[in-house]
């Protein structure tokens, strides 16, 4: 069962149940972010440290290569920029506008 966006109270499943799995992906939490990680594709060596450490699974990879950041879910904690090896420094944090 899919819960309709902005469903009225009568349409919701009993007791706040979420009657399917993997729904966290649809919940866009990125708008909490006050600082945004900027990824420099040229500098990145795809060591994937950031991918391992990101607490919100917001580092996107494809074929074992980093391809960018999922801003729909990235909360801007900055862990990726700290964990990126200093000599590489492929992620910098900037203030959200």
């Amino acid at each position: 069962m899919k819960i309709k966006h902005e469903a009225i109270w009568r349409e919701l499943p009993i007791a706040g149940l979420i009657p399917e799995g993997g729904t966290a992906q649809e919940y866009k939490t990125g708008d909490w972010r006050s600082r945004r990680p900027i990824w420099d594709k040229e500098k990145c060596k795809s060591c994937l440290f950031c991918w391992v450490y990101c607490p919100d699974s917001s580092v996107l990879i494809q074929d074992k290569k980093m391809i960018g950041i999922d801003y729909d879910h990235c909360k801007g904690c900055g862990i990726c920029s700290q964990i990126c090896p200093p000599k590489i420094g492929a992620i910098s944090m900037v203030d959200e506008g």
């Binding site: 499943p13 009993i14 706040g16 149940l17 399917e20 799995g21």
Partner: peptide, 19 residues
Amino acid sequence: PFTVGAIDFTDYYFEHKRA
């Protein structure tokens, strides 16, 4: 499978309470 006791913010809490 389903989730029970999920967090519920300003967008749905009121509807769930109303029910």
